[in-house]
Nucleic acid binder design. Structure first.
Lengths: 353, 353
DNA sequence: CTGTTAGCGCGTTCAG
DNA sequence: CTGAACGCGCTAACAG
């Protein structure tokens, strides 16, 4: 005679035990590897497990002291950007190597949402956090409500945190960033060397860490040539492809439009290419279209209708590195003393001269 | 006198209670909204919560009968494909509207990995699952080890499941698919109407549901014109851009290379465009390059160097619809009787004539 | 309005 | 080799 199937609830260890006619402990031990359990009992247990479709309740499991949840919380700013999808893949792969699962949230550059997410992750007993911090001031402020509050030590308890892509002032967490300044400087330098003097800038808000750094690299290169950025040619409030396309249209429609454009991320570069290609098709716009240098690579860069150089790097590697830094701080890791910052190099890649 | 901060552990409700000099129940009630708790006690509790950085343990919480975990498990096949990133965003948005969090796993088209993931999700007490099933036979087989075993009702317990993109025979779950056959038929029809007779095919494995359906649509359109697919022009084992590029090279290098190519997904279309553009730049390859019709849209399709039509749809909407079907089966939903299949329409969009 | 009791599913500890 | 008791953090149900 078989017991009735569980009604609307997952079967528990007790039900398995009852069905296998053993005690719950025998089930527990069997599932833990079975050392010290008679083989015939193990078989009865495993049969009952199969028949009932039993799954250990990981939540109850992690309740016990010393038992970890096996979860890593990942918060990113924009899942619609393939860049971050690839980034997550890097985190996920390393997490899987360490037997961990990732739990993912999208902040949409919203700090309130980031705070909720992180709080929830901690409530779910994540063992660690990988966060791409949403836009915020990167300047230290001396008022008493520091930015990045939700990522401060007190709020995190003792959950290790790794920041990716962007640093947050006042947060002493391990961080992986790119060589934003150097990459932007080199990319801009390339345009200057090619003789360009009117160079447009497309970027994300200055309140975003990378936005600020990449703009700084842009300015540095200009300064080295005795130039300064022309405010009329600087557009930096675009977070998505459509606004980037519109900003590009603005640049192209200026009376003395730029002969080249530096773009600070793939959203902006793609928007620029879309607008340029639209005008090429419809025959509108300036006679000559600007050359492009853009941070981040992307699929189909090859198809560019104008000269294009990308400042390339691997989002997957960024994610993997972030995860590695995190696991160093988890049980079994090397437990570094001070917060570390890893700056990954970038590569100038000429797509079309 | 303040208690020592929690050492390596998250603070518990008891510590908060001790610090606020109330009972744990008063803390619990305050955090649950505070109805029926004296305001001054609430303040003491909230102060203690802030000071200790307390976060409710959601795992312990969901242990109690009747309490749900607030988690939705999402398993996709390829996080590196921006398509699935966007898909996840759609799921995530709807889940957030319902106060749920998503927990994400990447199967890499590996059934074993899919099984592990789903088992783990259930162990974490997810309230529901959204799965893009990894490749498997779509034919019913009459042996006794049916495909899609891990998604069968017995293994899932009573966790509602929604399949997205791909159906699995024998699994009576709600499903959202695209009009794969109709879309592929229309796309191919367009090439035939334009006079093409030698049409290449790039697709994913026939063992993948969409791969099979899209190929069927391709064949149907050919048949309507009294034609059959030429096996020499059919390549369908590509899962990523690089192998798609190589397959395209194969097609282009044939003595009598196709005048048009139908591509069954964005990985293949992008690979094809890369190869064609490479040859255009280097001046190799056939004199005339084939026109393309591809399933899925993608960024920068505008830049195509050859005539291109895409069979367009919104991955985000697919994800959102999958989530909606799922929430219908969760507490508070409409609890439909039979499994439902939603077939989302696709749109032919001419990118370049 | 507040506190005590009990038990959710599991595994460590200790007895048999 | 097997089982019973206990407690992890939390909250419904029941006192007070």
């Amino acid at each position: 005679m078989s017991l009735p199937p569980p009604a609307g609830r997952q079967p528990t260890i007790k039900e398995v035990a009852r069905r296998a006619e053993v005690s719950p402990m025998t089930v527990s031990r069997t599932l833990a590897g079975g050392s010290g359990v008679r083989p015939d009992l193990q078989e009865r247990v495993l049969a009952a497990v199969r028949e009932l479709g039993y799954h250990r309740n990981e939540n109850a499991r992690s309740l016990r002291p010393g038992q970890a949840s096996g979860l890593i919380g990942v918060a990113i700013t924009n899942l619609a950007n393939p860049y971050y999808g690839t980034f997550c893949l890097g985190v996920e792969e390393v997490a899987t190597q360490h037997g961990r699962r990732i739990i993912l949230g999208n902040t949409g550059e919203d700090q309130a949402r980031e705070r909720q997410l992180v709080a929830d992750f901690i409530g779910r007993q994540v063992e660690g956090l990988v966060v791409v911090p949403s836009g915020r001031d990167t300047e230290e402020s001396d008022d008493d409500s520091p930015k990045g509050d939700q990522l401060s030590g007190e709020h995190l308890g003792r959950v290790p945190l790794v920041l990716a892509s962007r640093q947050v002032p006042g947060i002493g967490a391990d961080t992986v960033v790119l060589d934003d300044i150097g990459g932007a400087r080199q990319g801009t330098e390339r345009l200057l060397t090619a003789g360009h003097r009117r160079i447009g800038y497309l970027g994300n808000a200055v309140s975003v860490f990378t936005g600020q750094r990449r703009y700084r690299g842009f300015e540095q290169a200009l300064a080295e040539h005795g130039l300064a950025a022309d405010p009329a040619l600087v557009q930096r409030d675009q977070q998505d492809v459509e606004s980037a396309r519109a900003a590009t249209a603005d640049l192209l429609d200026q009376p003395d439009s730029p002969t080249a454009i530096f773009s600070a991320n793939n959203r902006n570069t793609i928007g620029a290419l879309q607008e340029i290609s639209r005008r090429l098709r419809t025959g509108t716009g300036p006679g000559d279209f600007p050359a492009l240098v853009g941070f981040d690579s992307f699929e189909l860069a090859d198809l560019t209708p104008v000269p294009l150089t990308v400042i390339d790097h691997d989002a997957r590697q960024l994610g993997a590195e972030a995860a590695r830094l995190l696991f160093d701080r988890l049980p079994g890791g090397v437990q570094p003393e001070a917060p570390r910052t890893v700056e990954l190099p970038v590569t100038l890649r000429v797509i079309r001269q």
